[in-house]
Design a protein around this nucleic acid. Sequence first.
DNA 1: AAGATTACCTGAAGGC
DNA 2: TGCCTTCAGGTAATCT
Length: 272
Amino acid sequence: MPELPEVENVARALSDTMVGRRLDGLKISYPGVLVQSPRTIRSALIGKTLAGVHRHGKYLILEFIDDSGSAHLMIHLRMTGQIFILDGYIPDKHVHLTFNFEGCPVHYRDIRKFGRLELVDDAVNPSAIAHVGPDMLEIRLPEWRRRIAHRTAPIKAILLDQSIAAGLGNIYVDESLFLAGVHPLRRPRDLDPATLAEVLRRAKQVLRLAIKHGGTTFMNFTNFHGKPGNFKTKLCVYGRSGQSCNYCGTTLRKLRVAGRSSVFCPSCQPES
DNA sequence: AAGATTACCTGAAGGC
DNA sequence: TGCCTTCAGGTAATCT
């Protein structure tokens, strides 16, 4: 499940390897992942050079330019999207699109077809995601506090809400709440300012650490070079229901919050 | 308004 | 070549 750290790793790899290359072709096997028509997307992008790679929350934006102007392709990997290059790779039925960057094929693969690729009007602040909040790594405490302090939904739901701050998904929300010692059902309105600050601090900390370790591979995320991320072994709670807490030994429990499975330590994260 | 629920998809896992 | 149900969760749409 690609969240901010996984998308950041893809963005960095794309930037390091493909910026400066011209897009010579676009093989589209399943147009359903495209928001615009294949014709529109091809005519906007082919012949242009990749000039930059941007990320906002879990959104990836590729910036293309040529003498005639610029075009921007926004990509969201949703649940099972992957972008990678791999020597000798033969695309299987889940590869829906392949970019040809001057002879180098970059594949978009997505088992569940939830991901989307969309031409947008800006490389940094496209109107298509105007409703999405600031990036979780960029947001500062006063603004975050202003956006959540009055809210009465469970903190878990608030952290998953991309319109408040963008980047956390189910895995890193559970990890952040565990590190902050906050139960997923606690409500922001009932938490004191120091606790709210601690949740934000821990969220940024776990995101940065996961980026450093190449992200988390739980189901089928692979990085740009087709390799799994290394952060799974660092997870404290996600996927560990029934196992014991690393810190206190209490058996970790699972709850459903905001329609998501949520693993927490009943001892480190008291309900009130 | 804000919170809650469901649709979109496929594959893995488990019950029988 | 077993069939069926449940679960996984990011986002948009739809409900209360």
